[in-house]
Amino acid sequence: TGTRRLSDLRVIDLRAELRKRNVDSSGNKSVLMERLKKAIEDEGGNPDEIEITSE
């Protein structure tokens, strides 16, 4: 578990975070980053400090 910047995430991490939020996880990295950023902002979170749970 740790905090990472949105830009540091790999595509696989972006998809996992989107799936956790029940958000569409298809598309390229830039699309996924925008989608995740919006989802985090909608939750009231900070997209520059994403809580990542290692699996």
Rank of each mutant, 00 (worst) to 15 (best):
T1L: 03
T1M: 10
T1S: 04
T1N: 00
G2R: 06
G2Q: 06
G2A: 09
G2S: 14
G2V: 14
T3K: 09
T3E: 09
T3S: 12
T3V: 10
T3L: 09
T3A: 03
T3W: 04
R4H: 08
R4T: 13
R4L: 13
R4P: 06
R4C: 14
R5E: 09
R5M: 11
R5S: 13
R5V: 03
R5G: 07
L6G: 03
S7P: 03
S7W: 05
S7E: 05
S7R: 14
S7G: 10
S7F: 06
S7Q: 10
D8T: 07
D8E: 11
D8N: 07
D8V: 03
D8R: 03
D8S: 13
D8I: 00
D8W: 02
L9V: 01
L9P: 02
L9N: 03
L9D: 02
L9R: 03
R10L: 07
R10W: 02
R10Q: 13
R10V: 08
R10F: 02
R10H: 04
R10Y: 04
R10C: 05
R10A: 14
R10G: 15
V11Q: 05
V11T: 13
V11F: 08
V11R: 09
V11K: 11
V11W: 05
I12K: 14
I12Y: 10
I12A: 15
I12T: 10
D13P: 00
D13H: 04
D13K: 00
D13G: 02
D13L: 02
L14M: 07
L14N: 00
L14K: 00
L14E: 01
L14W: 00
L14Y: 01
L14F: 02
L14D: 00
R15C: 02
R15L: 10
R15P: 01
A16P: 00
A16W: 14
A16V: 14
E17N: 01
E17I: 04
L18Y: 00
L18G: 01
L18K: 00
L18P: 00
L18H: 00
L18C: 14
R19L: 14
R19N: 05
R19D: 12
R19S: 14
R19E: 14
K20V: 00
K20R: 15
R21N: 01
R21H: 04
R21T: 00
R21A: 01
N22R: 11
N22K: 06
N22S: 10
N22C: 08
N22A: 09
N22D: 12
V23I: 09
V23S: 09
V23A: 10
V23Q: 05
V23L: 15
V23W: 08
D24N: 13
D24R: 06
D24H: 05
D24A: 06
D24P: 08
S25I: 07
S25H: 14
S25M: 07
S25R: 06
S25E: 08
S25T: 07
S25N: 07
S25W: 10
S26M: 08
S26L: 11
S26G: 14
S26Y: 04
G27P: 00
G27S: 01
G27F: 00
G27K: 00
G27M: 00
G27L: 00
G27C: 00
N28P: 08
N28Q: 08
N28S: 14
N28F: 06
K29Y: 12
S30A: 11
S30H: 07
S30I: 09
S30M: 14
S30P: 04
S30R: 15
V31P: 01
V31T: 11
V31I: 13
V31H: 10
V31E: 13
V31Y: 06
L32W: 00
L32I: 07
L32S: 02
L32Y: 00
L32R: 01
M33E: 06
M33D: 02
M33V: 14
M33G: 05
M33N: 05
E34A: 15
E34L: 13
E34D: 13
R35V: 04
R35E: 03
R35Y: 02
R35D: 02
R35I: 03
R35P: 03
R35T: 08
L36K: 01
L36T: 05
L36R: 02
L36Y: 06
L36S: 03
K37N: 10
K37I: 06
K38S: 07
K38R: 13
A39D: 02
A39P: 02
A39L: 13
A39F: 07
I40P: 02
I40V: 08
I40G: 02
E41I: 09
E41F: 09
E41A: 12
E41K: 12
E41S: 12
D42Q: 14
D42Y: 08
E43N: 06
E43F: 02
E43I: 04
G44D: 05
G44H: 07
G45A: 08
G45D: 06
G45S: 11
G45T: 05
G45N: 03
N46Y: 04
N46S: 11
N46T: 08
N46W: 05
P47I: 05
P47W: 07
P47Q: 04
P47E: 07
D48N: 14
D48P: 08
D48W: 03
D48M: 04
D48L: 09
E49H: 02
E49K: 10
E49W: 13
E49Q: 07
E49A: 15
E49V: 12
I50M: 11
I50E: 04
I50Y: 03
I50S: 09
E51D: 06
E51L: 11
E51A: 12
I52F: 15
I52K: 13
I52T: 07
I52N: 10
T53H: 04
T53G: 12
T53Y: 12
T53R: 14
S54Y: 08
S54L: 14
S54V: 13
E55Q: 08
E55N: 03
E55F: 01
E55R: 04
E55G: 13
E55Y: 00
E55D: 07
E55P: 10
E55K: 00
